[in-house]
Structures are given as C-alpha cells and as structure tokens.
Amino acid sequence: MRKLNCVLLIDDYHPTNVLHTIAIEDTKRVAHTLAFTDAEKALTYLLNIEDEQYIKPNVIFLDINMPGMNGWDFIQEYKKLTADKKSDILLFMLSTSTHPDDLDKADKEEEVKGYIYKPLTTETMLEVIEKYFEH
C-alpha cells in the first residue's frame, strides 16, 4: 500500500483545516499534513524548495472563497511555477460551492485535477489515494 509523503491544505478557516487534517491522518496513509489559512503564504512555501523545512506535497486541497488571494487567484500564480516546483503535485478544489460557474471553471483549469465538496472525509481521502497513486 502506497503511503503519501505530504498533503497541503489551503483554507482560511482554521477549524476546517483541523477537521480535514484529522480526516487525512485517520487514513494512516499520509506522513505529513500541512495547513495554511493564507493562500499567499502557501504560495511562498511552494516557491522556497530550498528551505530546509520544505516537504514536497503530493496533493493540494484548495478552498475557493477566501479573503485576499482566493482559490482562483492562487491558481493563476500556481500556473507560473516552474515545472520542478509543481511536478507530481495534484491540485484539487475543495469547496462548499455548488455553483455551476465554479464547477465549470474548475473543469476548464488544466491545473485542477478535481472538484471535491467539503468536508473532506477519511473515505474521500482514501479514494483519492487509490485513484491517483495506487498504480
């Protein structure tokens, strides 16, 4: 059974990050779960691969509605990252929004692997691992 090294959570609401962290840890198949409440800080983290704290995430879960830099803004910046900084990272939108516009937009973004409704559960996390990392 494959184990993921790192999952990155970006959501402005801290309790949500905590809840999602618990769900991820409960799979017992992820070594590190990192959480940011500020999308800019998450971006800075991804840029500084030289940093000794840096662990490359296998998966990013990105909220859409956030103050300041929102999910879509983040994706515009993420696109500019060089290949070495984002290769092998799978990015998922994680949102409560059922708005068709959001779904369409996510569908059209090449960088976005999928759209997942909140809350992220242990089962969903396991599905993601099985679907994208088991082969």
Binding site: Y13, P15, T16, L19, I22, T96, S97, K118, P119
Partner: peptide, 17 residues
C-alpha cells in the same frame, strides 16, 4: 443559506470526530 452551510459542516464534522 449557502454561507451558513460551511460553519455548520464544520460543527457536524467535529461532532463526528
């Protein structure tokens, strides 16, 4: 209603936890 969904999900999520 839509905005109320999210905090509510957090509440039910933590109850489950």
């Amino acid at each position: 209603a839509h905005d109320l969904q999210e905090p509510l999900r957090t509440i039910t999520g933590f109850i489950d936890v």
